[in-house]
Write a protein that binds this DNA or RNA. Structure first.
Lengths: 338, 338
DNA sequence: TGCTTTTGATAAAACGTTTTACTTAAAAAA
DNA sequence: TTTTTTAAGTAAAACGTTTTATCAAAAGCA
């Protein structure tokens, strides 16, 4: 059960180690017959190249690193399938870690992966601080693709059309009739989330005379159900039903729904609720929440494909593309009674 | 922005590369003063050891591999926190991949990680086929810890007390009065899941004369809400309410609850339902499902700690320990009306 | 024939560490 | 004083690849 190296094969085949390497990597000019012979021999002997050695030598590792905020972020779980399928397609593998929305951890994890020799990074950054990522990118000479963040245009990025989604919700709310329109927004440091707020307010400012950003927009500290639940006290104190509430994402919206259930408020009659993301548990457990569908899986695919493309095509790295994917409004029972 | 190596430090400090390595790794016998001096210099120059080089040389990587079945397995998400905290504690990092309950993929991912030089593996295996893991373990000379699987006692493992949990559910059902007791079991290849069935049936065989494994146990192909939902048709065709149904896990139980809601069956009056795992969304979204709580976080911690222990302590590897953690019954509205 | 090009293959350096065995100088023991 | 021990440090090999520069032989060309 001894581990066999490229030298063992060379010895067995009666050639040099260099020849074996060349044969296996489709380089140099060997006669096709030799190449096949060596390939077959390596296969037969159960040879597996030593990943550390080739990484050390500067050949790639065939592995890309992914840094997300939370593993149990449902959005990520969907995106993950896309990442995986695109990676499989190209024979790449990848390694994942979570930052817990903590800049330091994000930086630490990305560095660690880079030092371990990943061929590129896909990052769902926790804020607008991207300098450290830039540094990693040049220090290790690897491409980086951002997910849903585009403030700095020095980075390649894949994002959902947040503005369009928010506008669709706004239009939908206006069709519901004469209600108090409210937005429960998220932390300001996330550009995607700010885009939602800005687009929603823009439509409302134009179409709903009673709407003002000061009175009708609230902020939750955390993007969780608890966050949504907690903020409802403030909203209820400031306004009379019926409301229509646009939550910054589905988790927050679920917190609102729970609040309503506990306080005897009817949805959608007293409180209409819309979320953002269309997380998988809505459909899986039949939760009737109106929301904006984000093509998470496709975002994952695109991110991985773009990254792998940047690896070979150095020109792309000069002018990193920013891809915006379309979203769609899914109307369910939380805004329209069935 | 050139990358600095151990040689740069050696040159700067006026010593040899060997000395620097020794100083940094607390080996050899250097005067404390020198050691500190070199440490400080390395720090100041922003030296980061090249992970590939040290891995190639046979020093560890400080990274362990984790193979689970599904990323969006809620049980894993909880366990993950434990893995993380234990790893952080020891300055280790880890990399995760999913097998999709596919033996080939499980094997492939584990191999890949081993080849990349992880210092150990934590695996949530998809079945009883463990030969390939054994091979990886000796081939790369790394320890392996299994999560919730103990058929082969050649492996170290962390598991929940499945039998005890199932017995508690059974006792609870018997207290509910005179109802048809049913178990919706899972795939046979998972020993933990089989243990639940076996323990539940054992109690029922003793205490409920009308219970028979042939008539009162059903099987779902997939451990999902869809699986539970789909099997309810068969259960409803074979028995009259009121039932008490013990689902093999919470996801399956959620499928049952959804079926009941859609078919106008009252819980717990017509159908009492219990699950297993106490997945986080139950509490987060206020879903009143009676279930058996598994200390997932602690399982993660223990698994990581045990693995790291095995790394240093070769003796432990001779007789790999199997740790069984206690569970508890959590009674909620799906079996007892509040 | 002699000259150049192509083909097939190799030796050796390089990647950045860790570690073993060895050296030298100083301190301790005789 | 000489011998032995210890302290402090180093040279060099090793880990398993990839790649560059080189070389010999064969083939093409005049």
């Amino acid at each position: 059960m001894k581990k066999i190296t490229i030298l063992d094969i060379a010895r067995e085949a009666g050639v040099s180690a260099a020849t074996v390497s060349l044969a296996l990597n489709d380089k140099g000019n060997l006669p096709e017959e030799r190449r096949r012979g060596i390939r077959a021999l390596a296969q037969k002997m159960g040879y597996r190249p030593n990943a550390m050695a080739r990484a050390l030598r500067g050949a790639g590792t065939g592995c890309v690193g992914v840094v997300i905020n939370y593993f149990n972020n449902p959005f990520f779980r969907s995106m993950f399938a896309g990442l995986e399928s695109a990676a499989d397609e190209s024979g790449f593998s990848f390694t994942v870690s979570q930052s817990r929305d903590n800049l330091e951890k994000e930086c630490h994890n990305a560095s660690l992966m880079a030092e371990r020799g990943v061929d590129g990074l896909i990052v769902l950054p926790c804020g607008n601080e991207l300098a450290h990522l830039k540094e990693i990118s040049i220090r290790h000479n690897i491409p980086i693709v951002l997910i849903s963040h585009t403030l700095e245009d020095e980075f390649a990025a894949i994002e959902a059309d947040n503005q369009r989604g928010a506008r669709m919700v706004a239009e939908h709310f206006l069709e519901l009739g004469d209600r108090t329109n409210i937005h429960l927004a998220g932390p300001q440091r996330k550009s995607g989330i700010m885009n939602r707020k800005q687009a929603f307010c823009e439509v409302m400012a134009r179409r709903d005379p009673s709407f003002s950003e000061e009175r009708n927009v609230f902020y939750t500290k955390t993007l969780t159900a608890e966050g949504g639940f907690a903020m409802m006290d403030e909203i209820a104190a400031a306004h009379q039903p019926p409301y229509s509430i646009f939550a910054v994402n589905d988790e927050v919206a679920l917190g609102i729904l729970r609040y309503c259930r506990q306080h005897g408020l009817l949805t959608p009659e007293d409180v209409a609720v819309a979320g953002f993301s269309d997380i998988d548990i809505l459909e899986a457990y039949g939760i009737p929440l109106t929301t904006v569908h984000i093509p998470a899986r496709r975002m994952g695919e695109n991110a991985m494909e773009l990254l792998l493309e940047m690896r070979k095509n150095a020109k792309i790295r000069q002018f990193p593309p920013i891809v915006t994917l379309p979203v769609s409004l899914i109307v369910r029972g939380s805004t329209v009674s069935s």
